[in-house]
Design a protein around this nucleic acid. Sequence first.
DNA 1: CGGGGGTTGCACATTCTGCTCTATCCAGCG
DNA 2: CGCTGGATAGAGCAGAATGTGCAACCCCCG
Lengths: 156, 156
Amino acid sequence: MHKLDRTDTRLLLALTEDPRSTIVALAEKLGLSRNTVQARMSALDASNVLHPFDRRINPVALGYPLTAFISVHLQQQQLGTIVEKLSDIPEIVQAHGLSGTSDLLVRVVCTDADDLFRITGLILECEGVERAETSLAMGELIPFRAKPLLEREQNA
Amino acid sequence: MHKLDRTDTRLLLALTEDPRSTIVALAEKLGLSRNTVQARMSALDASNVLHPFDRRINPVALGYPLTAFISVHLQQQQLGTIVEKLSDIPEIVQAHGLSGTSDLLVRVVCTDADDLFRITGLILECEGVERAETSLAMGELIPFRAKPLLEREQNA
DNA sequence: CGGGGGTTGCACATTCTGCTCTATCCAGCG
DNA sequence: CGCTGGATAGAGCAGAATGTGCAACCCCCG
């Protein structure tokens, strides 16, 4: 993974403040030449520093106002096939493998409580899934953010 | 919240496939006029359909290879002040209020195990926090995605 | 029938982009 | 010490994209 230097983080910060700003605007803002910014941007695009655009889409706008986290306990030998099956469920928007008391943390979005019930059912149907504990998300109290990390990098 | 129609979702899909494509390119791809795309994009920007650019930044590239989820139990009356304090910790990149057995699901990034230990310490220090259960993320088995939801919208 | 919203086509001046070439600066190395 | 590679800056150019304004159109709804 391409390690970022101070210029890169400044670039990312500027982008965070205005995601649609042009290269020249960025260059001016950061006191760099247009060429430099362009080179950095290409490098960022090419590397895997940036997640796909998906991440910026708010599922609420897509008609899925409810978010839930489901802790899944499973037979670990089956992890691979289970993840494959879960991938087929569109409402599952993310899943992390975990160490600790549960094996999988699944994030789902849904239209309402009935929908959530249906989806947990789908998860429980998978062979190898032993238990699933659902927690409804009551709000994103701290929205995802990388800004504080970027700013710390600045001052370092 | 602005409800998205089929044109919007097609636009978002196209953007997901190429986040840096220009307005004209999008227009051509979708068979729409440049004006239309431009209008839609402005609307999307103005509404809260899109999360900030932050979300696309991979903390690994920033030097935080470890991710952990921490389930926090707390005195609910103190929720507000606790969230405020947690906001001051840069490594906390996200937090959701939960219904269910725990009150708060906190997502942290860190450089190594010691760093994680330090951060859990910071969380436990907050007044009103009763318990914190840490689970290390072993991998993002299903990376965040909105694409399946968008595609479903297409065919609906 | 008369809007209003969304869409379209067109045109204009301005700005941005991608690309190339050159030159400078600096750190690392033989 | 001199060389080399990498990052940066400056300039220039043709082509493309952008922002903007405007008139027209279609279609659904009241």
